[in-house]
Amino acid sequence: MPSTEAPTTHDLQATARRVRRDIIRMTAAAQSGHPAGSLSCTDLLVAVYFGGILRHDPANPFWPERDRFVFSKGHATPAYYAVLAEAGYFPTDELLTFRTLGSRLQGHTVMGNPPGVEMSAGALGMGLSFSLGLALAARMDRAPHRVYCMLSDGDCNEGQTWEAAMASAHHRVDNLTAIVDYNHIQNDGFSDYTRYSGDGDRDRVGGWVLDSGYTVKGAHPGAGRGGPQGAGRLMVRAKGLDSSLRSE
């Protein structure tokens, strides 16, 4: 069974620091990879995995009742692998094999490698559709678990993400939470092709409930298991979050 012990904000911040160090070590050792997009989603990942949001059991990665966490920004593997190792899915020693021949830790995610990785990614825009499929299957099976999908703002440039957002609203899926790591940085520089108001509007995206300004405390109501009937939740990491986090 997964642990239900609630960590303190201080614990979460310490975990996030270890993950950030791992990200730098991994990308330095590999002399390649995506450190920026990894660093930007570290707090979110730590909050999801260690802040009491995700119901999971690293010792039993295929536990049927686990919440599904789908990592759509499949290039940000340094953060994702470091968090999975920190959670106990595989030994942290393995992190430095990242991007090398024979390693399970490919440059972009491969489903099941290591166990805990729910989807192959690396071509942006695919995670929310996959998550919708998982959420619809859970509904068909009357299974109580939730599906969380973490997207980059690059993911949100892709039309498929909006196809999935519309279909999720159409099917009134309420067991799906999309988390956008809105870091304003893409491959070719600072950019803002994807625009959120960041002021917590409801229904900013048709049929979704928007929460913004999510912090590492993991206590944001948007992460709750309940929520309005027939609406998915969209959580956006607002710009400037890091400074507010450090001031806590």
């Binding site: 989807m119 996959f130 998550s131 499929g133 998982l134 619809l136 299957a137 099976d141």
Partner: peptide, 11 residues
Amino acid sequence: GVAAGLAAAGK
């Protein structure tokens, strides 16, 4: 993508 998610859930 939806079909893949359904399949990953055992369908």
